[in-house]
C-alpha cells in the first residue's frame, strides 16, 4: 500500500458507491422500507403472541441483525455489480487497482449504511416495542456490530467471487447468501431447535456465535463456551479464504475472458 495513492483508489470506490446510493431512490428504499417492514411485522407478531420482554428482544435482535448484514453486504456485492451493469468492468480492471481497494472502498460505504440501519432499527425497537439495548453496554454493542460487519464482508466477498465467475446471474446470490446464512444461524430461534445435521452447519457460521454472545446479556445462556473466540476466529479465517477465492476468480476471469464478456 502506498499512501495517499492507495487512499485515493479506495476512496474512488467509496465515493462511487456513495454517489450511486445518493442518486438511487431505491437505495434509500432499501435502507428504510425493508428494515421498517421487518421490525413492524416481527414486532407486532411478538406483541400478538404476548411474549415476555426478553424473548421479544431475542427475536427483534434477529430482525435487526438480518437487515444490518443485508444492507452492509449489498454495498460490497454492488462494487462489481455496478460495473457489470454499466458494462465498464474492463475499465476498472484496466486501472492499477487491487481487490483490497475495491473491498475497502465499497466496504466502507456498506459499513456506514449498515450502521445507519442498525441505529434506525434499534431506535424503532426501543421506541415501539420496548426493546432494551442497555444490558450489552457500549462495548457489547460495538463487538456485536463488528461481528455483523465481518459476516457482511464474508457474504459480500463471496458474491464478488460469484459475479466474477457468473456475471449478472450472480445478482440473486447477493440476497440469497445472506438469507441462507441467517436461516442457519438461529436468527429468530436458538440453534438448538434446528434438526440434527443442520445444527452442525450452524456451528460453522460465525454469526451464530455473535448472536449467542449478544443474547447472553438478556439471560439466554450461550451454548458455546467462548462465543467471541469462535465467532472472530471463524470470521477471520472465512474472510481470508474469501479474499483468496476472489483473487482466484479474478485470475480465472482473465484466463477465461470473463472480464471482457461482462463488459460487452
Amino acid at each position: 500500500m502506498r499512501l495517499p495513492t492507495d487512499f485515493y483508489k479506495i476512496w474512488a470506490f467509496a465515493a462511487r458507491s456513495f454517489l450511486v446510493n445518493r442518486r438511487n431512490v431505491f437505495a434509500i428504499f432499501e435502507m428504510l422500507f425493508w428494515p421498517g417492514v421487518a421490525i413492524f411485522s416481527v414486532g407486532l407478531l411478538t406483541r400478538f403472541l404476548q411474549l415476555d420482554p426478553e424473548t421479544v428482544t431475542f427475536i427483534l435482535i434477529g430482525a435487526v441483525s438480518m437487515n444490518t448484514i443485508q444492507i452492509a453486504q449489498l454495498d460490497l456485492s454492488y462494487a462489481l455489480l455496478y460495473s457489470v451493469w454499466a458494462k465498464s468492468l474492463k475499465h476498472e480492471f484496466m486501472a492499477p487497482v487491487g481487490l483490497t481497494h475495491i473491498l475497502l472502498g465499497a466496504g466502507l460505504v456498506g459499513l456506514i449504511r449498515g450502521f445507519a440501519v442498525f441505529v434506525l432499527m434499534g431506535f424503532l425497537c426501543m421506541w415501539l416495542f420496548d426493546m432494551d439495548l442497555g444490558p450489552p453496554g457500549t462495548w457489547g454493542l460495538i463487538i456485536f456490530l463488528a461481528g455483523m460487519f465481518m459476516n457482511a464482508g464474508i457474504i459480500g466477498a463471496l458474491v464478488l467471487a460469484l459475479v466474477l465467475r457468473f456475471g449478472q446471474r450472480a445478482e440473486v446470490a447477493a440476497w440469497a447468501f445472506s438469507y441462507l446464512m441467517l436461516l442457519l444461524c438461529g436468527l429468530y430461534y436458538p440453534v438448538s431447535i434446528l434438526p440434527p445435521g443442520v445444527r452442525e452447519l450452524a456451528q460453522i457460521i460465525p454469526l451464530t456465535y455473535f448472536l449467542e454472545y449478544f443474547r447472553h446479556f438478556y439471560g439466554f445462556p450461550a451454548p458455546s463456551p467462548h462465543p467471541l473466540l469462535y465467532g472472530f476466529s471463524q470470521s477471520v479465517v472465512y474472510l481470508c479464504l474469501c479474499y483468496a477465492l476472489v483473487q482466484y476468480t479474478l485470475r480465472a476471469a482473465k484466463q477465461r475472458g470473463t472480464l471482457l464478456r461482462l463488459s460487452e
Binding site: F7, Y8, K9, A12, R16, H91, A95, P96, V97, H101
Partner: peptide, 11 residues
C-alpha cells in the same frame, strides 16, 4: 472522470 482518476492514484 474523477472516479477513474482516483483509480490511477490521482487526488
Amino acid at each position: 472522470l474523477k472516479f477513474y482518476g482516483r483509480l490511477y492514484g490521482l487526488g
